[in-house]
Each structure stands twice: as structure tokens, then as C-alpha cells.
């Protein structure tokens, strides 16, 4: 079993990953303690989703080790992997609800596939899950009839249908209006506490994350660039974290993609550095 002293549910140890020649993750290490909600933050395309795929065993690291519940994910065979995944629930970025099934059937899906429960018990369980996200009334609707926020909450209910020990959220807040966003955030926290589960939230929404999570990791260009509890993050002086938390335009993450000299490219003579009006040299 896990040798980690801090009762980690998920341990990622010095993991490298690359798509072909493009390195996505470079020596990432992080721990997710049991029962906590941990956020992995970073800009778009920094490898956060890849990290979730690695934990779920859909990808295999090129170096390093991913351990979930004390087991090395890469060492599991197909059956072992599927047994492990039954302990996990995952919320995909756009919900990934099954479009050819009603909301009810979407949530009942795993119960029907993995258990031999009688249909009336499945009905009760599904309604309970739907009630937990406040959408019991939508059971008969189809995913196409739901708003973005509602679809996300249904997907949330589906992710926890089998009472998983680990729940992963891939960008749960992306593209939601402020009200839906905070509803989803509160639900994540509530579900984690109610199920006694461990949650990993991959997101770039710092404001919401700071309110609901226990610990945050910051990823940039495939590396961990900072971590801490919400309070530590708020008061951090790390330049990257400061830029992220306060949404500053320029900082360690440059506003400009690397390019040649702007004035040269426009064919202007680079006479002297331009100084903004009102500023003094």
C-alpha cells in the first residue's frame, strides 16, 4: 500500500509526458491528500488535462510514476485498470453526456452496466443523484434540451453515480455564467464532503477555486511553478501566482508570443524605444 506519510490518494512522482516530440509535462510531482479538494491551475494548453488523463490511465507517462490509492497505474492490466476506474468519476470539459439517452438514462448508465441492481432501486439512486445537483425535474429531458450549466451539473451527477473515491473535474467552470459557475463550484465542494471522496479540479478559474478548494497547484509550461493553500496563494509574492491571481496582462507569462522586432516587421525605422505618453524615462 501507499508508503506516503500524508495519506495521499493520488501521488504523481516526477512525471514526464510528451506527444511525439512535443514535451507536455516535465518532471511534475504532486500529492492529493485523501478527502481534500485540490485544484490544478494553469493557463490554456499547459498540460492540465493531460495530467488528468495520466491519473485515469488513459495515457501512460514516458517517465516517472502515477500512483492512485497506492497502486502504480502504468503497471495495471486492462481488468485492473477498469477495476481502478470504477473508483473514479470524471467530469469532462463539456460534460460529454450521451446525446442519445435521456438525463435519467445517462446517470443510470453506469449503474446498469456495472451492477445488477433492480430497476426500481436504480430509479431511486438516480433521482437521489439528480436531487443532489438540484435537477431532479430534468430526468426526462435529453442533453440537447439542457443549458450549458445544467448539462454540467447533470454530468456531475453522472460522475458520482457510483460513489467514486476520486472525482476528477476537467474545466468544470469553462463557459458558464457567474450564477451557474458558483452553483457548480458549491456542488463540487458539497459532493466531496458528502461522499468522503477526494477531488481534483483542473481549471483556470482562480476566483472560484480559491473559495472551494483546500490546496492549489500552479502548472506552467509543463512544470509546477507554485503551490499552497488558498490563504497562502492569496498572499503569495511569487511572480507567476501574482500574475495569475490578479490577472495581470504581462508577467512571467508574456502577453506576446515570441516574435521578431515589431517595428522592423512593420517596416518602420527603429529609431528609439517608444515611451508611453505621460511616463517619464
Amino acid at each position: 500500500m501507499s508508503s506516503s506519510p500524508s495519506q495521499s490518494f493520488v501521488e504523481i512522482d516526477n512525471v514526464d509526458f510528451s506527444y511525439g516530440k512535443r514535451a507536455i509535462l516535465k518532471g511534475i510531482s504532486l500529492n492529493v491528500p485523501k478527502g481534500k479538494v485540490v485544484a490544478i491551475m494553469g493557463g490554456s494548453g499547459c498540460g492540465k488535462t493531460t495530467l488528468l488523463r495520466l491519473i485515469g490511465g488513459q495515457l501512460v507517462p514516458s517517465k516517472g510514476m502515477v500512483r492512485v490509492d497506492g497502486q502504480d497505474i502504468a503497471a495495471l492490466d486492462r481488468d485492473g485498470m477498469y477495476a481502478m476506474r470504477r473508483k473514479m468519476g470524471m467530469l469532462f470539459q463539456f460534460g460529454a453526456l450521451f446525446t442519445d439517452m435521456s438525463v435519467f438514462d445517462n446517470i443510470a448508465f453506469q449503474l446498469r452496466e456495472h451492477t445488477t441492481l433492480p430497476e426500481d432501486m436504480i430509479r431511486d439512486l438516480v433521482l437521489m443523484k439528480l436531487d443532489a445537483v438540484g435537477l431532479r425535474g430534468t430526468a426526462k429531458l435529453f442533453p440537447a434540451e439542457l443549458s450549458g450549466g445544467m448539462a454540467r451539473r447533470v454530468a456531475l451527477a453522472r460522475a458520482v453515480a457510483l460513489d467514486p473515491m476520486l472525482i476528477m473535474y476537467d474545466e468544470p467552470f469553462a463557459g458558464l455564467d457567474p450564477i451557474s459557475l458558483s452553483v457548480v463550484g458549491q456542488t463540487i465542494r458539497k459532493l466531496n464532503n458528502a461522499l468522503g471522496a477526494t477531488s481534483i479540479v483542473v481549471t483556470h478559474d482562480i476566483v472560484e477555486s480559491l473559495q472551494i478548494v483546500d490546496y492549489l497547484y500552479f502548472v506552467s509550461e509543463g512544470r509546477i511553478v507554485g503551490h499552497g493553500s488558498p490563504d497562502e496563494i492569496r498572499n503569495s509574492d511569487e511572480p507567476f501566482i501574482r500574475q495569475f491571481v490578479h490577472a495581470e496582462l504581462d508577467g512571467p507569462v508574456p502577453f506576446h508570443y515570441p516574435a521578431g522586432n515589431y517595428h522592423e516587421q512593420l517596416g518602420l525605422a527603429p529609431v528609439r524605444p517608444v515611451t508611453p505618453k505621460g511616463s517619464r524615462p
Binding site: 476506474r85 463539456f94 442519445d100
Partner: peptide
Amino acid sequence: EIGLMKATEQLKAMDMMAID
């Protein structure tokens, strides 16, 4: 149908639910 399920990550979601 299958392509759409792939594009909307339904296949990946199913795989994550331990259903091949």
C-alpha cells in the same frame, strides 16, 4: 454517430467509466 461521440468525448467518458 460514432464520430460525434468521439468528438464530444463520449467515448472517452465511457472508457473512464470502465466500459469499453
